[in-house]
């Protein structure tokens, strides 16, 4: 059975990591395992059964297309979130800076909330990068 697991891992080697990919690999290994046991019950040797399962597995191109379209959607979503966070933080900072200079021009305090607000676009930037 180990040969089968190695084969499946090898097939999926070039597809980017994702939770969906992990799930699908697990399901496929389980499915092929059952197939091999079934073939062995019908009288095949383990080696023959495993080879038959591998030969009949087919081309993973279709699965790749499905998985990558998921990935693409997520990336698009992350990009929208990033631009939203940038616009949002600019607005908030503009308010702070205005309040600071209009009401208390003698004390420069807007720098402190600026550090706090910057976490927002930073996190979104990180998310966006991690999906690239």
């Amino acid at each position: 059975m180990k040969k089968l697991d190695v084969y499946v891992d090898e097939l999926f080697k070039n597809i980017p990591q994702s939770q969906q990919k992990e799930n699908i690999i697990k399901d496929i290994k389980q499915n092929l395992g059952e197939k091999v046991l079934d073939l062995m019950e019908q009288g095949k040797s383990e080696e023959d059964a495993i080879n038959k399962a591998i030969v009949e597995f087919g081309d993973i191109e279709d699965i790749r297309v499905e998985l990558e379209s998921n990935q693409l959607e997520k990336r698009k979503h992350a990009r929208i979130q990033l631009s939203f966070s940038i616009c949002g933080s600019i607005l908030i900072l503009a308010l702070f800076i205005f309040t600071n200079f209009y009401y208390t021009p003698q004390i420069i305090w807007f720098v402190y909330p600026t550090f706090a607000v910057l976490w927002w676009p930073l996190i979104m930037l990180y998310r966006w990068f991690s999906l690239r």
Partner: peptide, 8 residues
């Protein structure tokens, strides 16, 4: 059916 198509 091929397993690969099934999972796609």
């Amino acid at each position: 059916i091929k397993e690969a198509s099934l999972y796609a």
